[in-house]
Amino acid sequence: MNADASREMPDARPHGPTTRSYVAVWGALIVLTATTVAVAGFNLQKIAIIVCLGIAAVKSTLVLFYFMHLRYEHRLIIKLLIPIAIGALAIFIGLTFSDVITR
């Protein structure tokens, strides 16, 4: 986080995932998409929401970690940004929820 953190290598140099692992992640994403569509086909009702959003969360984590290199990120502030944004959103939604369900 300090000033010395700014002296670092650009990350287009090959210290992130390999070409093969990108394709593997793509494969995983396609499989997960197929799974989520299949799951939605069964009539799971309320569980379907949890499963579908759970799979979506896994998929976006894969994109964030590998495609967007968050796994190889060494700056704390950047690692924290997505949790901060999601956290802020969760609070916004949660507090609004506290009104809507008790109204």
């Binding site: 989520t36 939605a40 959003l53 799979i55 998929k59 976006s60 994109v63 967007m68």
Partner: peptide, 22 residues
């Protein structure tokens, strides 16, 4: 690229919310 991945991630959530969860 990072921006484009974001566009992908948002769709990853829109897809189940509108098409799958019934």
């Amino acid at each position: 690229g990072l921006y484009w991945h974001l566009v992908d991630i948002i769709w990853i959530f829109l897809f189940p919310l509108f098409y799958l969860i019934t």
